[in-house]
Design a protein around this nucleic acid. Sequence first.
DNA 1: ACGGTCTAGGAAAGCGCTTACCTCAATGGG
DNA 2: CCCATTGAGGTAAGCGCTTTCCTAGACCGT
Lengths: 332, 332
Amino acid sequence: MATLADVARHAGVSTATASRIINGSSKPVADALRARVLAAVAELKYVPNAHAQMLARSHRSAVGVIVHDVSDPYFAEITRGLQRVAEADGRLAIICNSYRQPDRELEYIDLLHAHQVAAIVIAGSGYLDAATAARLDDRLQAFEATGGRIAVIGRHEHTGDAVMPDNEEGGFIAAAHLFDLGHEDIAVIAGPAALTTTADRLAGVRRAAKVYRRSLPKGRIFHADFTRDGGYAVTDLIQVKFPEVTAIAALNDSMAVGALASLRDGRRRVAVIGFDDMPIARDVTPSLTSVRLPLTELGERAMRLALGEAGAEPRVEHVAAELVRRESTWDR
Amino acid sequence: MATLADVARHAGVSTATASRIINGSSKPVADALRARVLAAVAELKYVPNAHAQMLARSHRSAVGVIVHDVSDPYFAEITRGLQRVAEADGRLAIICNSYRQPDRELEYIDLLHAHQVAAIVIAGSGYLDAATAARLDDRLQAFEATGGRIAVIGRHEHTGDAVMPDNEEGGFIAAAHLFDLGHEDIAVIAGPAALTTTADRLAGVRRAAKVYRRSLPKGRIFHADFTRDGGYAVTDLIQVKFPEVTAIAALNDSMAVGALASLRDGRRRVAVIGFDDMPIARDVTPSLTSVRLPLTELGERAMRLALGEAGAEPRVEHVAAELVRRESTWDR
DNA sequence: ACGGTCTAGGAAAGCGCTTACCTCAATGGG
DNA sequence: CCCATTGAGGTAAGCGCTTTCCTAGACCGT
């Protein structure tokens, strides 16, 4: 592995000069030397050691991103936005998947901290459990204490810069849409009970039930795991236990897609509304009515917050949810 | 930012001892000291500087991954496999999106090289252009020369460890399926002409045409960009220009989904076969017949190659493509 | 021609950590 | 009872780079 010293020796200059030439320092250097050094770099195929650079110049550049799972379209879209902005700013974004395990999130925070990232962006639902939330915030604060910046997407655990999709309002919109269409007997497929996103969206659904004076018994609320197969399994169950249900509100699109598949296989005609409006929502059949969250934008804004100046006041940007009507919901 | 020296001072020991305790070195240490050091770590919220560690111990651990675009389900699945194996091996996987730009691939190779990763995995189609391929291989060789390991997925540019999906055979399978069903007039939606994946799959389609003694005029082969919208636009065109076409072979699922949407909007009944068998293939309507590639497995195997012993002989694993019949293709 | 001012380039001090090597005290054997 | 041995802990030399400070030659004005 060629080092700067090798290059300098090869070109017959000091490491200081070599460094200055390679990094395009403002200090003027004779053209002859410059050419010799550059030639040496090419010949030795020299690639600077990023770790040594990080250590020597003490400024941080890379940014860390923690999401639940990039291969989930929801996070894939958010990540796309995150990356786009990071890249435009000339920064390496290190993406970590927690696979929905809080412990892994903690590990990754420390890992990113250890890697001296300039900022960490955490996307994806937080955890209702107070102890878990506290541990998380504790690590985050330790990171901030060393000058790191943090931005979260839709998380309550940490007070600081945040982009907050309005999950509660979205839940309201979803349920209200079903009620508006005249559905009385609805079932809800919520996400894991431990997640704040589930709680928030569910709160909106419950508020809608109250506003519309509809009853929404506990038994009509099911918890799945935010995956397509989870939605499928629960919908199978709903069809058997509650044949009178005419509409289902799934609290994310993946589960809604599963619900649609189950309904198709069971040859039942039940309205379904999803949440998030992932790209595939328009391509399933019937195309999926959903509550749209501008996922890519969420990512872009969060990264901009993370890369912006550290303000004294935490900046919290609220992002509205919006109904996208398609074929999977209809008048009763 | 607390340093090891701070911790050592705080605990009244040398940095050597502190380091040994923190890293669980095999050297025995008095329990009293251990406790003091650990207490200091907790109190100061010390997090070791990963860059300094990398520099001091000279072994590499992280691995780099370069894909076209993680938010594309094709790469999302591959990445999932890649990550799973990397994580199981206790390594950080740094994921980079080239967004299909060869130059960015080069940049990322250097960047990962600079970050002293132990291995680089490159997934996604390579480039037919000889000059581009040569530049790529050049960078890769420079990386290998420093002891780095490389594994590629479906790329021809670099000779070394590789996992090769059988794209040619897959193309054959797709076209043969259509011919078997009695379709004579077929159109092909290929990917960007500059990509090797496009060329390989197309070669298989052409071979099928030859074997089945069907003509496949140039005009029936369209190039789109492997995206859903690209497939949609091309299919709009096909419907207008070639109303006699009864079946379309799209050379990836995203474009096939777009084709399905266009056909639905145009109220035409045309058979469609995709390629890759992405998870959503079963949830579009009609559900998509496709040529299955075990994407997650592709990723897992590539990462295993990258992390395995460096063998003298390059190991090349071929992965078969397989027809998955669903509702989007039918007898003529 | 001489002192003073620039300027191009080099010497060397770290950045935060690991680890080979050294020290010193305690221990045991002869 | 003394010396060799062991073992716990410290000292310090880097890892590869950046950057401050310094040097020595070139250049200017008088």
